[in-house]
Computed example of a mutant assay.
Amino acid sequence: MRHHLILRVITKLLIGSIMLFALYVQFHGDYSPGGGFQAGVIMAVAFIIYGVVFSLDEAQRVLPPWVVHKMAALGVLIYAATGVYSLFVGYGFLDYTALSPDYPEKGQHYGILLVELGVGVTVTGVMVTIYYAFTSRTPIMDDEAW
């Protein structure tokens, strides 16, 4: 474990910056390139790098599989709830004006933020789930067979 000390220290320094950049992309996606999908992938990369450097068990201790599965479902729920809310108040599905009828521009902004948040949470959950699935499988051949 000690022979990877520099890699571990650099990884710990980078993970915070990667997550911060993911949040930047998430919340500035409606004004600049980016949004929920890109932010979700970037956020997932932070957890995946942590798992690659420190081990799958450590990554699952930080972000347990049950939380990851709930994230994937929660993101879809946020996305759908935004559209269903607009239906309940008399607008079309995903008509963001329903979120602020007096100020439609604000409604557009809120709606885009909510939908992109849902996409980001779902993508993070799905990408980390895929990583957990691939790394936890039993290999068919041992390393010496290669």
Rank of each mutant, 00 (worst) to 15 (best):
D30R: 07
S55W: 07
Y91C: 02
T82L: 03
I18V: 15
F88W: 15
D57K: 14
S17Y: 12
L7C: 09
H4P: 05
V84G: 03
Q26R: 13
I112F: 11
S55I: 04
V68P: 00
G90H: 12
L94P: 00
V115Q: 09
V68R: 01
A133N: 04
G107F: 03
I49D: 09
S32T: 10
A72R: 07
L20G: 10
T97V: 03
G75N: 08
R8L: 07
G36N: 08
V128R: 08
A73E: 07
V25N: 08
A72T: 13
Q26L: 13
G34V: 05
T122C: 04
Y79D: 03
G120M: 02
V126W: 06
D102W: 00
F93D: 06
A81T: 03
I48D: 12
H69F: 07
I48P: 12
Y24T: 08
Y91D: 04
A80T: 11
A80Y: 12
E105D: 06
R137L: 07
V52Q: 13
K12I: 14
S17C: 07
S136R: 10
I49S: 08
E105K: 04
G35T: 13
H69R: 13
A145V: 14
I48A: 05
Y110R: 02
G107A: 05
F134M: 12
V123Y: 01
V89N: 03
Y91M: 00
V76Q: 03
I48G: 10
F54D: 08
G40T: 02
F54W: 09
